[in-house]
Amino acid sequence: MNVLDIKNLKILFRTGEGFVRAVEGVDIHVGEGERVAIVGESGCGKSVTSLACMRLLQSPPAYYTADTFDFVSRDGTRHNLLTKSENEMLTLRAREMAMIFQDPSTFLNPVMTIGEQLDEVFIYHKNMKPKEARVHTIEMMKKVGIPDPEMRANQYPHELSGGLKQRILIAMATSLSPRLLIADEPTTALDVTIQAQILRLIGERCEKEKMSLLMITHDLGVVREMADRVYVMYCGKIVEEGTVDEILSHPKHPYTKALIDTVPDMNTKTERFVQIPHNVPHPMNKPKGCYFSNRCAYCTELCTQKQPPLYDRGDGRKVRCYYKTEELWEK
């Protein structure tokens, strides 16, 4: 049974220059207890997708539509996220679906103590008195490995290190053991040494609370560590889908292959870093055919004419490319 079921999600932003096509028909599903990652460069629409799942995009300027946009809560009820009112969403957020954000230093309110910010979750969702909430807060802080939680609870965010702040955000998101945890690049803003700890903590929390995980990242190392299944996104479209081992060892889309090639290998000495030529096209100015065509090493005339569909290649592999792997690597 799927926790999150998205079919053909499209998101637009209305700006001064016209509509920006942020997400163009994306199918994503997250199973019970499954850990799914969405990978892509910045600006490919992955964060927008995650915010849309929480219904946190302001509309206007954002407009969205989908064939299916369902979330199944723990009691088995199917919620259509498209038609939910803001009030109904309040009962889903934090209780059933929660989110961890990118930069812990800007995502905590600077003028409230850590404790106050964590208390709120219990106060507004469990109707607790502040004192009672604080007991739970302290307990929660212990669970995410914050030393001396009583003292930390009375401190302000600027008094904590980045790693601790991210732990606070994790505590905040997982305190009501939601069914789905969305993590939007949770380690990008942290030191490398802290990253591993935070990833491990997220993994532990998911296992203990039986949460499904939707991880948004651009880091393939994080993907290998954290995910069971991977979606590769490019310019608002899914370009490849499959299990983590399949994708990382046998990429079928030129973009995925290029992404993997850009990761420097520690064991072999390379002359140069591999890079993907050009930049991600501006969302107002995407290529006519396949969106990756202008950067693709295997691009043909066909690719520049018409956007390929997402081919189903069996075994849960889907690839948005006209060519099968053998054909491609031949060229």
Partner: peptide, 19 residues
């Protein structure tokens, strides 16, 4: 927005194969 959404449709696999 609805009009722009409509433009985003993918072609089917069969059409793509023919192409």
């Amino acid at each position: 927005a609805e009009a722009v959404f409509a433009e985003m449709a993918d072609i089917s696999e069969e059409e793509a194969d023919m192409l």
